[in-house]
């Protein structure tokens, strides 16, 4: 159930935006780190103490080959093993929608780290809504490439859904960036209906209130 199949060139943007939210020398845990692209970047460019969890063994092995500190594990079950406040930032890129219990995963991330950075595809994007409206079928877009019965994305949400969940868990949005259909990044004001239509994917940085 690795989300790596969804990682195309577009995601490079999302990783870059995440990296920009991370201060120099931070202690970072990347949950669902894939082949370690973000971790390598953080270690090399940001002097971060960067570690990862990845569910696919091939991804883990690729990371360790690169010298990264990565263990095989599952976001849904293995975050409990990490001590509280052990990290400055816990990252979950393009993985939230594939977890079984997104609320628990989010809560765990902000137990382990002072901040959480989460990126996910926006199911409220206008094209998704349009396709559902016109075709009457589960939308498949550039970002959502799987058919409904084979998708690993079992918990898709809109920006609005995510913001409401984050608030209900007692987290505040420090920063939010949307990646629009043309690939351009724009800051998002939480609660913006327009952003919820226009952003194809979004990156949120959360803090415990």
């Amino acid at each position: 159930m690795s989300p790596s199949t969804d990682r195309n060139d577009r995601i490079r943007v999302d990783l870059e935006l995440i990296a920009q939210m991370i201060p120099d020398g931070a202690r970072v845990l990347d949950v669902g780190c894939g082949d370690g692209a973000l971790l390598s970047h953080l270690a090399d460019e940001k002097h971060a103490d960067a570690r990862g969890i990845e569910i696919s063994q091939a991804g883990v092995n690729a990371c360790v080959r690169k010298g990264l500190s990565v263990v095989q594990g599952d976001a849904d079950t293995d975050l409990v093993d990490y001590p509280s406040d052990g990290f400055d930032i816990v990252v979950l890129s393009q993985t939230l929608q594939a977890t079984h219990r997104p609320a628990t995963v989010l809560a765990e991330m902000l137990r382990i780290g002072k901040h959480a950075i989460v990126s996910f595809p926006n199911f409220g994007h206008w094209l998704v809504r349009w396709k559902l409206l016109t075709n009457g079928r589960m939308p498949e877009t550039g970002k959502l490439v799987h058919s409904w019965h084979s998708t690993p994305n079992i918990h898709l949400c809109t920006l609005r859904d995510f913001e409401i969940l984050a608030t209900s868990l007692g987290f505040q949005v420090d920063e939010a960036i949307g990646v629009m259909g043309d690939g351009k990044a724009k800051p998002i004001t939480p609660g913006s209906a327009l952003a919820n239509l226009r952003a194809e994917q979004a990156i949120y940085k959360l803090t415990k209130v």
Binding site: V64, S69, Q72
Partner: peptide, 21 residues
């Protein structure tokens, strides 16, 4: 091996873990 890795994580240790096919 996984128990060792979990214990290291719980202790805030720095660990890589690979299971080889």
């Amino acid at each position: 091996a996984r128990t060792i890795v979990k214990a290291l994580n719980a202790a805030g240790g720095n660990v890589s873990f690979v299971e080889i096919e």
